[in-house]
């Protein structure tokens, strides 16, 4: 009996090979609380085919896996990179053009990439507990320079929200970013490897604010029926993260892969993202949980992906040195 289970587990590769479409994504996307299962069900009903998600650690791991596998990748689609990683991924020369018209999508900034299809987005934000914090800074400058609130954020070398904050700081402070980091360090409780650690520490009351998403309060409103968690709106605007997907050139079933990309931005799929991924769908008419109506809608800040790729090393070093002091 055990042996049989073991054998069936070991031959999972079989089911993977048998799937018509293999999609690499990040771990929390595939879980039952993520959008994966609902999307899988809806698309399989539509295409009469079999799709399989492979969950990797996070978006960065996704890019690295693609780099490692190269043209021999088992994946037909890579889903869950963010706009900051787009240029580096394109440079690998592994992607197929999506051939979709994306003109009717609503995005924080104009999207004209021929490989990547954006499927949801969210602005980074500092989330606070209004039972605990009364004087909320109105800008990133105020948070860094004047406020005495403590913060927790994620490591820019390891996680996408951390990257996001780095880019946010850079777009607000520019050449003065190093000084700003040093100032922020004084208010920093800690820097965590990922979002979960940071958010857990914040919820347990270890800091006044945590770096997360504008949409985070929606979860608390929907499931915990509390509005005490709020995202602070900053006057300079908020750095945005757009999540994207692309088909691979090496896919054995490119037409089906493109069908899936089209499906991603169609209403049935877009209806899923709000309440499972807690991000804004890119289709204006898509459904979102009622709690989304209570969210702030900040101005957008962003860098071109090429600029992120060219400067990342230097900017990380700048953060590292400034925040180590």
């Amino acid at each position: 009996m055990k042996l049989k289970t073991l054998l069936s587990l070991m031959t999972l590769s079989g089911t993977l090979a048998a799937a018509d479409l293999t999609i690499y994504t990040y771990e929390s996307f595939t879980g039952e609380w993520g959008p994966g299962p609902a999307l899988e069900k809806a698309f399989e009903a539509q295409c009469n085919c079999d799709i399989a998600f492979v969950g990797l650690e996070d978006g960065v791991a996704l890019l690295n896996r693609l780099r490692l596998e190269g043209e021999q990748s088992q994946a037909d689609i890579i889903l869950g990179l963010d706009d900051g990683l787009v240029a580096e991924t394109e440079a690998l020369g592994l992607l197929a053009e999506h051939q979709q018209s994306l003109s009717d999508l609503t995005l924080p900034y104009r999207w004209s990439n021929e490989y990547f299809v954006p499927y949801d987005y969210g602005h980074f934000a500092f989330v606070y507990d209004d039972q605990r914090v009364s004087e909320v800074p109105g800008s990133l400058k105020e948070l860094v320079e004047e406020s005495d609130l403590s913060v927790i954020y994620q490591d820019p070398r390891l996680s996408t929200p951390g990257q996001g904050l780095m880019l946010w700081m850079k777009s607000v402070f520019g050449a003065d970013a190093a000084d700003a980091w040093t100032q922020l360090q004084e208010k920093t409780v800690t820097v965590t490897p990922g979002w979960s650690e940071a958010y857990s520490l914040f919820l347990e009351g270890n800091s006044d604010m945590v770096l997360s998403y504008v949409t985070s309060p929606a979860y608390h409103i929907s499931f915990e029926e509390t509005e005490q968690y709020k995202a602070a709106e900053f006057a300079e605007g908020h750095y945005v993260q757009i999540e994207v997907a692309s088909a691979l050139k090496s896919s054995g079933n490119l037409p089906l892969a493109r069908d899936f990309l089209a499906f991603l931005v169609s209403k049935p799929a877009q209806d899923v993202f709000g309440g499972t991924n807690w991000m804004w769908p890119v289709l204006a008419e898509a459904e979102t949980p009622a709690s989304f109506d209570k969210l702030i809608s900040p101005e957008t800040l962003y860098f071109r992906s090429e600029d992120v790729a060219a400067n990342r090393k230097a900017w990380i070093r700048e953060w590292r040195n400034a925040a180590s002091q």
Binding site: E27, S28, G31, W33, G34, F53, V54, G55, S196, W278
Partner: peptide, 16 residues
């Protein structure tokens, strides 16, 4: 396509 208990926990945490 398999899920372990720690992966399940990790997925749960990543989804609030």
């Amino acid at each position: 396509q398999f899920v372990t208990l720690p992966i399940l926990i990790y997925q749960a945490m990543g989804s609030y």
